[in-house]
Simulated scan of single mutants.
Amino acid sequence: MNVERAKAIYNSSENIAVQLEGKPIWIEHVDEANGMATVQVGSNPGNTQTVRVDRLEER
């Protein structure tokens, strides 16, 4: 995935399925300048990671 698509998903009012290494995630923040995203893995709000957006896959 690229930064533009990650931002579009983040800003969308729709639920768009995104995965990180086969696990469902929610995008919480997109850092355009660095090509990074902060994501929540699964349904646990405490399980967040900052990863490169190119690791995210739209499903």
Rank of each mutant, 00 (worst) to 15 (best):
E58C: 04
T50A: 05
E32I: 11
N11Q: 13
I9T: 09
V53F: 01
A6G: 04
T50C: 08
M1D: 02
S12K: 04
Q49Y: 09
V41S: 09
S13R: 08
E14S: 06
N15F: 09
V39F: 10
E21D: 15
V30A: 13
P45F: 10
L20R: 11
E57Y: 02
S12N: 06
V41F: 01
V39I: 15
E32W: 04
A6W: 04
W26L: 06
M1K: 09
I9Q: 01
I25D: 07
E58V: 14
E28C: 04
T48N: 10
G22H: 13
R5K: 13
H29L: 03
S12I: 02
K23F: 09
N2E: 12
L20E: 04
V39N: 04
K7D: 03
N44P: 02
E21Y: 12
N2L: 01
A37G: 02
H29F: 12
E58W: 03
A8G: 01
V18N: 05
E14N: 09
N11S: 08
R52S: 14
Q49T: 07
T48V: 15
M1H: 09
E58K: 08
A33F: 04
I27W: 02
I27L: 08
P24C: 01
P45L: 13
V39H: 03
E58S: 05
E14Q: 11
T48G: 03
E4P: 06
N44Q: 05
